[in-house]
Computed example of a mutant assay.
Amino acid sequence: MPERDDEEREFDIGWADGAEHKEPSARARMLAARWKDNPPGPVPFRGEPEHRGSAGRSSWVSTAVVLGSVAAVIVLLGYFDFRPY
């Protein structure tokens, strides 16, 4: 008989999807309550880009740092691999 009870308790996704009323998530309820008195302002899809004085230079510097680090790791691995024991 315990097997029959387990089959009856199994969640039926078709039954749940067919429900007439779906309760909103806790976050949705919290935001709805917060925005009831103080609605948020409009937010653009993409914000204005921040002005960076030396945007070109910083990208080259970061690229040089990454490539230098990779080269250093390759040299160190080569040194330890060919070092006699």
Rank of each mutant, 00 (worst) to 15 (best):
R34Q: 11
G56V: 03
P39E: 06
E23W: 07
S62D: 12
A33H: 07
E23Y: 10
W15N: 14
E7W: 12
A55N: 05
G41Q: 13
F80W: 11
M1I: 09
D5T: 11
P84H: 04
R29S: 04
L76M: 09
P44I: 05
L77V: 15
R34V: 15
S58N: 09
G41K: 07
D12V: 02
P40V: 04
F45P: 01
I13N: 09
R34D: 12
P2F: 14
V75L: 15
H51I: 10
N38Y: 12
V65D: 08
F80H: 09
G53V: 11
P44H: 05
L67C: 05
E23D: 13
K36I: 03
E10K: 12
A33E: 09
R46S: 08
Y85C: 04
R46Y: 09
A55H: 04
A64Y: 02
G41S: 13
P24H: 01
P39I: 03
V43M: 10
A16L: 10
Y85M: 10
A28L: 07
G47D: 09
R27E: 13
Y85T: 06
T63S: 12
F11I: 15
D5F: 13
A19M: 13
E10C: 04
Y85R: 11
A16C: 05
S62I: 14
I13F: 10
G47R: 02
L76R: 01
L31N: 00
G14E: 15
G18V: 03
S54Q: 15
D81C: 09
V70A: 11
P39G: 02
P40A: 03
S69V: 06
R29M: 11
R9T: 06
A26H: 12
G68M: 00
W35A: 03
G68A: 00
R83E: 14
P84N: 05
A32I: 03
V66S: 05
D6G: 03
R46L: 12
P2A: 10
V70I: 14
G14F: 08
V43G: 03
A28H: 04
H51A: 08
A71P: 01
G14K: 05
P84S: 06
W60L: 15
D37L: 07
L77Q: 06
F82I: 03
R57P: 01
P39V: 02
L76P: 00
V73F: 11
P44T: 05
N38L: 10
F11R: 10
E50P: 07
E3G: 03
E23Q: 12
L31V: 06
N38G: 01
F80C: 07
V65W: 05
P49W: 02
G14C: 08
F45G: 08
A19C: 13
R9F: 12
H21P: 02
V73P: 01
G68V: 01
W60C: 10
S59L: 15
N38V: 07
S59W: 09
P84C: 04
G41Y: 06
D12Y: 03
